[in-house]
Design a protein around this nucleic acid. Structure first.
Lengths: 247, 247
DNA sequence: CAGATAAATTCACATATATGTACATTTTCC
DNA sequence: GGAAAATGTACATATATGTGAATTTATCTG
């Protein structure tokens, strides 16, 4: 079950992150199609808690810097080492595609850092983006780091859906693909989950955290180059990862 | 009316900002005294939206860097000029008290930047902290920047309460205090709102934004020094504010 | 400066939603 | 290695909550 008002808080904040300017109650209500009265209650709650203020009289609400202060607190803990961002920045620059660092979240994989392609046709992904762990290159690069028991536990919760022609729709299919990935030396996906999308990924354990790096883009562009992209990822990780802290 | 689940989202995030480590469903539910099932729904919603993930298997949830990305987006807009932070840092260092930048939010004043005193007994305030605009030095320094009509409009919404012995409990009392502040050259408060708390503030218009600077601390320590603290604030603003962009 | 128009706020009620209970799964401890 | 404890998940139901309509307040326009 989705908690509506919790989701609404996130939507409001995303709204501000997009528009980047103060908005009045009416503007917000109209934008989301929410009743004025409900919007009023939500804004009042956020203001009450010190997360919204009125920068100028009658110019509407805007988030206080408290969001930033809180987010900084949260993200200071075990931040990703700086070289991981360099990694995806370099990969994106060299390949012209979108590169990301990915982490597990139950049966899903979450993008925790992203450098987007600059191409007109690109894989559009943002931090926080989620994809099925079993049906994506990045996700399978995470599964490779699990023990058999841990994988089984995840499998039990997966709802196998035919997202695309090549989606693995059984535990065996996933396990086979994992074995192939080991043999191949990297994980790949050709529209397993998203139409027209292909990508290459490898595991990226950091400390005791299980992460992965992925480069993905439109199938017609990246498809034929997947092996060399995978090799490039491996080389770039080797180059950037500090030798002393290597897992 | 307060929107409970909206407030709960904020509480959860504040919880993570404090503990700075992943937490399981059970830990969160117990900490807040929430039912497991409700906590489950909330965490599911936040995860679904890409704001929570599971860094390590079975180690619980933690916010994704998406919070930081979003907060950065929001705060990039008209950030406070860097000298304002220097301002309160210097003031706090010189006086040993807590110094803040404050902005209006209806009948309240919000702390949008804070440098805390290092003293054992100190004014404890954080970014997002809210105080009544009419019953605090910082708030009155904001009101001084309003036109008479704008002030009247604010007054109509104020619920006058006797927070302390010297709280102004009528429009006239507030207006008189404002006139006194102008004559005096700064705003002051002696436990008008919080017990044992005294402070000095002056308006700090930046562009078309109406802000104020305040230095506040325990009455016994800062009380006798309020005039010199006020003079120090004025001098420090003069020193740090760029001449070219002065309002 | 009225009169009109739009926005913000309040409130009572129907309905969407949080939760108690039951079940499944995982982990801990002996 | 097996039983007990803890944790995570699903669902029906009573109730807390969101909302439409009415009221008040602010803003625009001629």
């Amino acid at each position: 079950m989705i908690v509506r008002q919790a989701a609404n808080v996130l939507e409001i904040m995303e709204f501000f992150a997009q528009t980047r300017k103060p908005a009045t109650l009416a503007e917000i209500a109209d934008h989301f199609g929410w009743p004025r009265s409900s919007t009023f209650n939500l804004l009042a709650t956020l203001s009450e808690k010190g997360y919204l203020y009125e920068p100028r009289p009658r110019a509407g609400f805007y988030p206080t810097p408290r969001w930033l202060a809180m987010a900084r607190m949260i993200s200071e803990v075990e931040p990703l080492p700086p070289w991981t961002h360099t990694l995806i920045a370099d990969l994106s620059a060299e390949t012209g595609e979108t590169a990301s660092i990915v982490a597990p979240a139950g049966v899903m994989a979450v993008f925790i850092d992203v450098v987007e392609s600059q191409a007109a046709i690109r894989y559009f992904a943002t931090i926080g983006h989620r994809v099925p762990i079993h049906a994506t290159a990045s996700g399978r690069a995470l599964l490779l780091q699990y023990s058999q028991e841990e994988r089984d536990s995840v499998y039990r919760k997966i709802e196998f859906k035919q997202y695309g022609p090549s989606t693995p729709i059984s535990i065996e299919a996933v396990e086979i693909e994992l074995r192939n990935s080991i043999a191949r030396g990297y994980c790949q996906s050709f529209a397993d989950y998203s139409r027209d999308l292909a990508g290459a990924a490898i595991p990226l354990p950091i400390g005791d955290r299980r992460l992965s790096v992925v480069v993905a883009g439109p199938e017609f562009r990246i498809g034929p180059k997947v092996p060399e992209v995978a090799a490039l990822i491996a080389r770039t990780v080797d180059r950037l990862r500090p030798k002393t802290t290597a897992a």
